[in-house]
Design a binder for these strands. Structure first.
Lengths: 192, 192
DNA sequence: CCTACCGATCGGTAGG
DNA sequence: CCTACCGATCGGTAGG
């Protein structure tokens, strides 16, 4: 049996796991210490505060989604191709980082006002990427003209953000099928 | 200035408000007492425990959605008419009971295992109502034949359950417009 | 619904 | 990362 020293990074990772599972306020520093094999008070050698841990996890979530949207838009292609990339990227972020994503989506509201408003700004920017691609698809007649870019981006993101609530990788649907199903559903709603 | 005595019902209502806003674990009995103008300890004249309050709020949420689905299916009509009723009913429940719904959707996982499994069963039954109507719509050729009833009911419910996260009644979209927009989006995804 | 508490647990610190 | 704490707050109770 090997006993390994913890790093700041794996403390943050374990915090994401517990925040996702039991919520920020439902997780004590002693819970987190137990998860890592040390005392709650020892965590302060790695982080400044409990809030600090939440900030780190949530900001990682924001970075992941931002990077995904960046890559999707940089890939170029038709508006529907870019929309497909946005969807595939989002599903990938959710499936590969379930704890970070759950904390990002459900616990960000527990942040202090300053950090929370930065998260809201990041989410708005992310939603703008979806809205612009949908708007472009309407302009070039890929999508139906009566589509509302704002509402339809919210509806699509509602589907994508809810994945964390029900999708289990050991179920009947694998990751690439999931991308296909969400994409087909969205494009069916968007087309003429 | 009048000082009114509290009832069990308005204690539960205030609990829903705070649980929705700050989360179950983020709300103390003293917070709730302050909200009602009494001491935290005085709440125990109305309820047995803090968990008891969560149970009451969450079970009310389950009842509201159950009643909505019941009414929608009892109204009869074509499969797409029943789907419209399910959607309108769900939106109505969310808009008229935002605190109860937010607690039902976000805090039910904080319940003890026994109550939580009952909530999960109630959600499954509710999802079944959507799934059956979608299945009927596929059978009678109202909806496209390649639609997956299970996944498409989840996608539609994702949109409906996310309303609590973004919709504000003082915004640009009113309740009946919201029903129309969600309905149009879903039916566009379902049609041939 | 208040007074007066209870033991347990919370986030966090000093010093090593 | 541990020892040994700290004051504050937690859910809850006895008795009125």
């Amino acid at each position: 049996m090997v006993t390994v020293r913890n790093t700041r990074q794996n403390v943050i990772k374990a915090a994401g796991r517990l925040f996702a599972e039991k919520g920020y306020h439902g997780t004590s520093m002693r819970d987190l210490g137990r998860e890592l094999g040390l005392l709650g008070s020892s965590l302060y050698a790695h982080v400044e505060s409990k809030q600090d841990l939440l900030v780190e996890v949530v900001e990682e979530g924001a970075r992941l989604f931002h990077a995904s949207a960046d890559a999707a838009l940089a890939a170029g292609g038709s508006s529907s191709a870019r929309l497909r990339q946005l969807i595939a990227g989002h599903v990938g972020v959710v499936l590969e980082n379930p704890d970070v994503v759950r904390t990002y989506l459900n616990e960000a509201r527990m942040l202090d006002a300053e950090h929370r408003s930065r998260v809201i700004a990041a989410r708005d920017a992310y939603e703008q990427a979806f809205r612009q691609v949908i708007g472009a698809g309407i302009s070039d007649a890929s999508f139906r003209p009566d589509l509302d870019p704002k509402l339809s981006s919210i509806f699509l993101l509602s589907i994508l953000n809810a994945l964390e609530r029900w999708y289990r990788p050991d179920g009947a649907v694998d990751g690439s099928q999931l991308v296909d199903e969400v994409t087909e559903f969205a494009l069916a709603a968007f087309k003429h």
